[in-house]
Design a protein around this nucleic acid. Structure first.
Length: 488
RNA sequence: CGGGACGUAGCGCAGUCCGGUAGCGCACCUGAAUGGGGUUCAGGGGGUCGCGGGUUCAAAUCCCGCCGUCCCGACCA
């Protein structure tokens, strides 16, 4: 085995490991366009599973899908003052089309609030037309100065939900409902624990009244904002004249929410579960859950029998709803296949060779070890096949448990001294819980001194007991607990 | 946009100082053997040397200009 076949270990250079694993697990590749990437079938397969799960959850909570255009009149983006302030620097604008300069430039959507609410204004007259609960799956573009595969690309895929309600309470309830949906999704599908909470003003979405987010801790102990849900108040409805007549006959502006998660989640998955051998895909998201590797010798008369048995096992697994595949490629040695599928993070490998055929067994290998440290098990064929659905679910749970333990080990509560926070964030990293007076200058100072930000004002269940009493900035009393980290 | 580095085969690089037939490793193709953790041997294909101009008998190499990429900072799902 030569050195260049291995990945740079995470311990040595996490950023290099991340890039290599994304490229070599064939999740994505660089494209000819600066900052834009190609999502390859293995990466897109994972995204498709994420989409399918989320889509179902949205529908189960009463939402419908629709589609709005890619191009937005520039004047729309400019209507909401904070919104344009926040997005102006990263807009890509079409000024020329059909061989002529356009009368009004068209912005390639960085997000779709403006065009969507302008349409809602057309569709809503009465409280009877509310709520509107729509979602769209789309691509958006933000001209970032520095990009990273999946984590920050100029163009990315996401879903954006946009709702309109008759009352503030109802919109607020929707904002939190989606926060819960996202949390379930991240825990149960991505197996990625998250801290939910409210953003401070400095990190709030441009144009929102309140932004809630879900923050995950990556293996290098930097935070990743995995999703956001915004309560927009009437900021956009006022600008786009999204009005309705209430039961009482009054004309009122609607209350909006918007929320999204993106292909960034794939990066989160990689940095949450990956190891020095490659990525580890949670079984529920894995395009292939079990790869059957037949081990056949060129001159062996049993070669055909082995392939037949492999196919038979695959078919039985498929009947049980397990996504299995037989790797019949003859130009690769078994070892080469093992490494390849491990790099791609397939949850289980099933080896089937002449010896197994004789004993009617298989060698089942788990992508990460069982609790007792074993990876390989020799199992009778019927038993292996029958237990695989349970084994997949068990691996799914183990991944979540392992990630949660890691996050807790790297979370620091009750930190009250500035120097202590500095020491943690500049060496180990992680989530640091402290008290905060609400003074934004404390945030600025942390950003300047240690490149750290308040990731969230945590939701109740994530708060510490006892609650902090003093502000981390020194002197003053704490008004709320906050979570600090260096972030992606 | 400021500071630094680099553009030579799909990938990673040597060759550039000191001009003289474009090379190495991996990958790829063919054949044979091999096959339970990255298989071996033999043969083979593939390059406008980032682009444009200049100097020269002769330029990957020297000179001028441009373009692009990556890293470090300022902006960010």
């Amino acid at each position: 085995m030569t050195a260049d076949k291995r990945l740079t270990p995470r311990e040595q250079d996490f950023a290099a490991w991340y890039n290599e694993v994304v490229l070599r697990a064939e999740l994505a590749d660089y494209s000819p366009v600066r900052g834009s990437m190609v999502i390859r079938p293995w990466g897109f397969g994972i995204w498709e599973r994420m989409q399918a799960a989320l889509d179902q959850m949205f529908k189960d909570t009463g939402h419908e899908n629709a589609y709005f255009p890619l191009l937005i009149p520039q004047s729309f983006i400019e209507k909401e003052a904070e919104h344009i302030e926040g997005f102006k620097p990263e807009l890509a604008v079409v000024t020329h089309a059909g061989g002529r300069d356009l009368e009004e430039p068209l912005v390639i959507r960085p997000t779709s609030e403006t065009i969507i609410y302008s349409m809602y204004a057309k569709w809503v007259q009465s409280y009877r037309d509310l709520p509107i609960l729509l979602n769209q799956w789309a691509n958006v573009m933000r001209w970032e100065l520095r990009t990273r595969l999946f984590l920050r690309t100029a163009e990315f895929l996401w879903q954006e939900g946009h709702t309109a309600h008759a009352t503030a309470d109802e919109a607020q309830e929707e904002t939190l409902r989606i926060l819960g949906v996202y949390r379930d999704f991240m825990e149960q599908w991505v197996a990625m624990p998250v801290v939910t909470g409210l953003k401070t003003d400095s990190e709030r979405f441009a144009g929102a009244v309140r932004t809630y987010s879900l923050e995950a801790l990556m293996q290098d102990n930097r935070a990743l904002q995995a999703g956001t849900s915004h309560f927009l108040g009437q900021n956009f409805s006022r600008q786009f004249d999204l009005k309705f007549q209430s039961v009482e006959g009054r004309e009122e502006y609607a209350w909006n929410t918007s929320w999204g998660v993106s292909t960034r989640m794939v990066g989160g998955l990689v940095m949450t579960h990956g190891d020095d051998d490659g990525i580890v895909v949670p079984p529920r998201l894995a395009p292939t859950q079990v790869v059957v590797v037949p081990i056949v010798k060129g001159g062996d008369a049993r070669a055909e029998a082995i392939h037949r048995k492999a196919e038979e096992l695959r078919a039985i697994l498929a009947d049980q709803g397990v996504r299995a595949k037989v790797d019949r490629r003859s130009h690769l040695s078994p070892g080469a296949k093992f490494y390849e599928w491990e790099r791609k993070g397939v949850p289980f490998r099933m080896e089937l060779g002449p010896r197994d055929l004789d004993k009617e067994q298989v060698v089942l290998v788990r992508r990460i070890p069982l609790e007792d440290g074993r990876k390989k098990e020799f199992l009778s064929q019927p038993h292996a096949v029958a237990t695989l659905p349970d084994r997949l679910e068990s691996l799914q749970r183990d991944l979540f448990r392992r990630a949660t333990v890691r996050r807790e080990e790297n979370s620091y509560r009750g930190v009250s001294e500035w120097d202590e926070m500095t020491e943690i964030l500049e060496t180990r990293g992680g989530f640091v819980y402290t008290g905060w007076s609400g003074d934004p200058t404390v945030e600025e100072r942390a950003k300047d001194e240690m490149k750290a930000t308040i990731r969230a004002i945590p939701s109740e269940e994530f708060r510490s007991t006892p609650a902090p009493t003093t502000c981390i900035g020194g002197g003053r009393a704490s008004k709320m607990e906050v979570v600090w980290a260096r972030a992606y």
